[in-house]
Design a protein around this nucleic acid. Sequence first.
DNA 1: TTCTGCCATGTAGGTATTCTACATAGGGGT
DNA 2: ACCCCTATGTAGAATACCTACATGGCAGAA
Lengths: 109, 109
Amino acid sequence: MAENLRLTTTVAAVLAVFLEDPQAPHYGFDLTRATGQPSGTMYPILLRLERAGWLEAHWEEIDEAVAERPARRYYRLTPDGLATACSQVAALRKQLGRASKAQKEQVAW
Amino acid sequence: MAENLRLTTTVAAVLAVFLEDPQAPHYGFDLTRATGQPSGTMYPILLRLERAGWLEAHWEEIDEAVAERPARRYYRLTPDGLATACSQVAALRKQLGRASKAQKEQVAW
DNA sequence: TTCTGCCATGTAGGTATTCTACATAGGGGT
DNA sequence: ACCCCTATGTAGAATACCTACATGGCAGAA
């Protein structure tokens, strides 16, 4: 039931990709490109998120004889994971929102 | 000149408080209340931010004979720190912004 | 006066997380 | 033969965080 784990910026970045389209599955290599995180950061995060019950995973089924690339391990948000990720990411965004005044004064984003 | 350091969620929370009013100084105990972080997390962060050149600090000058409380150590954003913090926090916010679609669909925030 | 609580800064030690680098393995191109 | 791309993953060091405690002075209550 979406257990506790630390919502670090890198974890939040991963979740943000999932939340972009909550039904869509993603795989590790995909996420490393989307977030800019190295594989040595990404895969441990996915393992933690799966163990904590935020994500569920399955191996892509491909015909190994005809395969042109290694099989992917697809991850998807669980219902609990979706709810928890949503509120946690929103809370983080809200916290960062305090900075909006200075940001507007400085530059056009 | 605002060296590299990891923009973790706790660091971002601290910076967000400073960015709320970039000229205003803050002290540790103040920030622990504003962010909800324990002192054992806060003071090391302030040390790192100061060493990295994002913040500059000075001790409050109070008459020790009449003092009713310990002296505070005030921190303020340096010009470099302001610019760097601004862009880094904005980048993080942008990254989290991908999640907006799911957030709107789920709940009213 | 002893106890408790508040302010304010900070350290110690263990755990969690991240980073850099490397390992594996098959396909395709030169 | 060699290198690059896809794709997942581990090892070990570095970094950051959390819980708990230390310090010390003042104020108010028991």
